[in-house]
Amino acid sequence: MHILTDLFFTIISTIWDVLPIAAIIFGFQLAVLRKPIPNLKKIITGFILVLLGLGFFLEGLEAALFPLGKLMAQQLTDPSFIAHGDSEKVLGWWDYKWVYLFAFAIGFSTTIAEPSLLAVAIKANQVSAGSIGIWGLRIAVALGVAIGIGLGAYRIVTGTPLYWYIITGYVFVVIQTWYAPRMIIALAYDSGGVTTSTVTVPLVAALGLGLSTTVPGRSALLDGFGLIAFASLFPIMSVMAYAQFSEWTAKRSKNQKT
């Protein structure tokens, strides 16, 4: 059972990652705040559960989904798959249609499984007293990431400069901020950063690398980056759109009643 020894090492390395955080928290608690931590036992149990949970989570992804997903990203971007064995064919951007669909689908599905997004959604649901749904937020963010990664894949295929897209995106975000309900703005900006961690980054990085090494004229080092930037920008817009849409439906049903 080598998966169990792998699990052990993954947990050890997770503990290693958490040590600086624990040191900062307990250091400040003891040296600056000089107060005992309430419910210390429960909190330590919580930390241990988080560590074990992340260990299992990462090891499971590493054993099951990452190898297959990465292999898939390679195979889908392979010229022989895209040109159907016709090596003479000049590839246009539309020949990569399965790649865009894969990018969209993998962006959506990995975001739904992202633990840090789940954490923020739970918190937002508590703070908004239930008016922001856990699933509503997660699906809004996941759609944003899906559109972002899909468009990012198109950008690598066509080779247009990254900053055009990002700066245009910024302009849209700023305009949308003017019209979005005030309570959602901070949360929407946050959701850009939380979407891309443990599950999304490895698979998306494999896709970017696969595309940029196989599309003629692209270099892995220069064009392989940028998908994560797309995935952190589009959720801002989709979450604000989600709030605007809920506000609109709420208004409409109110008008119908009166």
Partner: peptide, 25 residues
Amino acid sequence: IAIGIVFVVIGLTLFVHGLNMGLFP
């Protein structure tokens, strides 16, 4: 792959519980 998926499911469950017990408080 099946074992891996079981691991991921267990891991996510433990993480969410630990979140509410430890990290949030």
